[in-house]
Design a protein around this nucleic acid. Structure first.
Length: 236
DNA sequence: AAAAGTACCAACCGCCGGTAG
DNA sequence: ACTACCGGCGGTTGGTACTTT
């Protein structure tokens, strides 16, 4: 089944591992000349000893213009949290609402920060993060937060935040689904969703409580699971 | 100072859907 | 209709840097 056109071929014929600056330049030059796509022909045209898959990944995740480097902003984190609550591990879908961020980056971020809450770390950095992010919804509702440094005022506000979050999430879901129900989903600019979320996020962030909530990521089924399957129109 | 633990990130792998021949 | 290839996606792994003990 494996062809010889560059996508699938005997492994030993392709270079693997970290990319060198020279390889990056070859790939960049190739894309500048031929545009994105046609990954299977990169090796033949550019002299790279990388398969098409590897080239595409390198371009999308690292070389593509407009990529943001560095830490995610609180706004971006909020969008990730919200969209993950809506869609689950649809990283590429979530990434479309975060211009300049890649699905790989978002996936890595999520796994690093949220996935393994069940195994709290003693690491200082991680503790710092957990102080703000490691509460399940249930814990918050019950007000039985372990290992926190929240002061009283913050604790008192958690319930309010939860309620506000639920309302905003429902509103967001409603706004997002109703156009689909009326068959005009393709006319809606999906960036509006990101704006809505970001706008709401600013509200929460302004209270200094942005990270005081977290859905229980261990849920296999999301509260809006049906929406995960809904089609949408990409921003770009 | 060194070992162990942890976080972060780049890259690989397998699978799947679309599509051209 | 069938087959093979391409492009894309999500899961996973391995390496490196950083932090803690």
């Amino acid at each position: 089944m494996d062809g010889t056109m560059g996508w699938r071929i005997a492994d030993q014929e392709w270079r693997k591992g970290p990319w060198t600056p020279a390889e990056d330049k070859l790939l960049s030059d190739y894309v500048a000349l031929h545009g994105e796509g046609r990954w299977s022909s990169v090796a033949g045209c550019s002299g790279l000893k990388r398969n098409g898959k590897s080239c595409r990944l390198r371009w999308v995740n690292y070389l593509r213009p407009g990529l943001k480097k560095g830490q995610l902003t609180p706004q971006e984190e909020g969008i990730i949290i919200e969209l993950h609550a809506l869609w689950g591990n649809k990283w590429s879908t979530i990434a479309r609402y975060l211009p300049g961020r890649t699905d790989n980056e978002i996936k890595n971020y999520w796994r690093t920060h949220f996935k393994k809450q069940e195994k709290p770390s003693k690491n200082k950095k991680n503790r710092k993060f957990e102080d703000h992010n490691s509460y399940t919804e249930d814990q918050m509702v019950k007000g039985t937060i372990n290992n926190t440094k929240l002061d009283e005022s913050e604790e008192n506000n958690i319930g309010m935040i939860i309620e506000q979050t639920h309302v905003m999430l429902q509103e967001t879901a409603t706004n997002f689904t109703s156009p689909m129900a009326t068959g005009v989903q393709h006319q809606q600019n999906p960036c509006m969703l990101a704006q809505d979320v970001a706008s709401w996020w600013d509200t929460v962030a302004d209270d200094g409580l942005w990270s005081g909530f977290m859905w229980n990521q261990d849920h296999d089924h999301h509260p809006n699971q049906a929406m995960v399957e809904q089609p949408f129109t990409p921003c770009f």
